[in-house]
Design a protein around this nucleic acid. Sequence first.
DNA 1: TCCCCCAATACATCGGAGGTCTGTTGTCTA
DNA 2: TAGACAACAGACCTCCGATGTATTGGGGGA
Lengths: 223, 223
Amino acid sequence: MALTDEAIDKIKGMITSGELGPGDRLPKEADLAERLGLSRNSLREAVKALSMIRVLDVRQGDGTYVTSLAPDLLLDALSFVVDFHRDDTVLQFLEVRRILEPSATALATERMPVEDIAKLQAVLDQLGDNPTIEALVANDLEFHRQIAAGSGNAVLCSLIDGLSGPTTRARIWRGLTQEGAAERTREQHQAIVDAITARQPDLARSWATIHVAGVEEWLRRAL
Amino acid sequence: MALTDEAIDKIKGMITSGELGPGDRLPKEADLAERLGLSRNSLREAVKALSMIRVLDVRQGDGTYVTSLAPDLLLDALSFVVDFHRDDTVLQFLEVRRILEPSATALATERMPVEDIAKLQAVLDQLGDNPTIEALVANDLEFHRQIAAGSGNAVLCSLIDGLSGPTTRARIWRGLTQEGAAERTREQHQAIVDAITARQPDLARSWATIHVAGVEEWLRRAL
DNA sequence: TCCCCCAATACATCGGAGGTCTGTTGTCTA
DNA sequence: TAGACAACAGACCTCCGATGTATTGGGGGA
């Protein structure tokens, strides 16, 4: 195994063993390099890799710290990864979303406080009459994010959020190529909010399924 | 933005733009560094980060290549990330598993070829009478991996695989075996295989739900 | 024709130097 | 005394040049 990978494992070990907790500061580069028995350059590669996946937070002029290790932070890296995928695998991501999103919506129906439901409605309302494609997509993203957050499960939330990345592009194309899509999306979003407001999980789940399946079906035909 | 991060973005751009495809070889370090306008050391940090998440594959003495970019490769990094989580967030991961695994099992029930079902049964059979914890963990991992693979969705498969990393699983098993849950798990595994063999998706889904929920419930009590 | 050796290639690792950013401290002024 | 400014030290950022090491492919010998 390469020296750098070893260093990564050792730092990982320092964290998982509890020697380093969230928010703790690492020894300075030179000291840590000496302790791990490698050069600063090699150590920096290890630290860079760990900061990429949000495990470490390096601040120039200050020091290197362990992040909060919150699930949403760590799963953030997911969206970076899915960016690399080409159109043919996007369908698989969408299939997974069709599994996750309905469940998240059902959970949100049960757990979401009334005031958050109001915020959800507000998101829908703030969309004007003739929004741009970008505004539509941004609004859609925000809508689904709030529902995912309403599930009360940070892991589920950021997973859905991350998976939505690659499908975003697809939605933009959809908006460009399919005229009635925007209006239908709005209707479905409203139906989901209504179901949540009425506290009917199975109805909310069904609408969410239909909503995602609609995008999926369109994409399947388009490819 | 740091120079290294810029380099990461540029390399990412070279791939997403199609200039570099899966399997392609990158220019050698010195050339690429010059082209991107930075030193070799800084470039190496960028390459290291990208190879961490399996986007690049560096081979000493040969060169640096773009990987296949297959979903399973890229989501592999997930298990690394999951390892950092402590017991309190593991519950959230398990909750997500309880959403994904039943659906994957149901999909596998419909799509899995007969010979793969036989292999699945073989996995269960090859476990002896008094297995070690390591054997249990490995067997459990293999069982669920084969089912996930049977769903025919690589993204779903590696997501499930990554969500309960070996570390997490081992930790859970260590606790479970102390309560003699090994036998119950084996029965549930068998029930899942039976349902798949009978091609009854709803039954398979239910067993999978029960199976995951059992672990989840135990963990909830243990914390 | 086959096999072994070696030179070329490319990544791995190292140590040091100069630059830049940040937080702190000490001083000056109102 | 309170606030603002300047100097300082600590820590990361970037680069350079050199040496070590693994892989590959070609040339020479049997």
